[in-house]
Amino acid sequence: MTNLNGDNTTAAVFIESANLRGCNAANYPYPGGDETLITYSIEKILPTHSYQLKVCERSTEGSMSGSCDNVLVKFTHLDYQLPNSTKQVLSVIKLGEW
C-alpha cells in the first residue's frame, strides 16, 4: 500500500516453524501504522483465485482524509522445501495493481 507520505508498505507473515500449518503472527502486523485506520474490500473476484482488492488508510491528521490503493492478488499453492520432503503451502502473491 502506498502511504500518505508516498512510501510503500508491504505486509508479510513469517512462519516461525517449517512444520507448522498456518501462520503464527506477522513480525509487524501494521508497520508504522494503526490497524484501526486500515480497511480493505474485495472489489472483484476474478478467475483462477485472483482478486481485485481496495486497501485504504484513513488519516487522523493533516489535510488529507486518507488514501487507497487498488491491489491485484492471487491465492496459490507453492512447494515449501523441507530437508527431507516438500509440503504444499497456501500463499498470496501480489500480481500488481488495477
Rank of each mutant, 00 (worst) to 15 (best):
M1N: 07
T2M: 10
T2E: 11
N3E: 08
L4S: 10
N5F: 01
G6F: 09
G6D: 05
N8K: 13
T9E: 02
T9V: 14
T9Y: 02
T10E: 10
A11T: 04
A11V: 14
A12E: 10
V13P: 00
F14I: 07
F14E: 14
F14P: 07
I15D: 13
E16K: 09
S17D: 14
S17E: 09
R21G: 03
R21H: 07
N24E: 15
N24L: 13
N24A: 14
N24V: 13
A25P: 02
A26L: 05
Y28L: 11
Y28M: 08
Y28R: 11
Y30F: 12
P31S: 04
G32S: 10
G33Q: 07
G33H: 00
D34Y: 00
T36D: 06
T36W: 06
L37C: 07
L37K: 12
I38P: 03
T39L: 06
Y40N: 08
S41Y: 06
E43D: 12
K44A: 05
L46H: 04
L46A: 03
S50I: 04
Q52C: 12
L53Q: 01
E57M: 04
E57D: 03
R58N: 03
R58V: 00
R58Q: 01
S59E: 03
T60Q: 11
E61N: 11
E61Q: 09
S63L: 08
S65G: 15
G66T: 09
C68R: 01
D69S: 15
N70C: 03
N70T: 15
N70D: 13
V71E: 03
L72Y: 11
V73I: 03
K74Q: 14
F75H: 02
T76V: 12
H77F: 15
D79I: 09
D79F: 09
Q81S: 15
P83I: 09
N84C: 09
S85W: 05
T86K: 02
T86Y: 01
K87E: 11
V89Y: 10
S91Y: 08
S91C: 13
S91H: 12
V92C: 15
V92A: 12
I93L: 10
I93K: 07
I93R: 13
E97L: 08
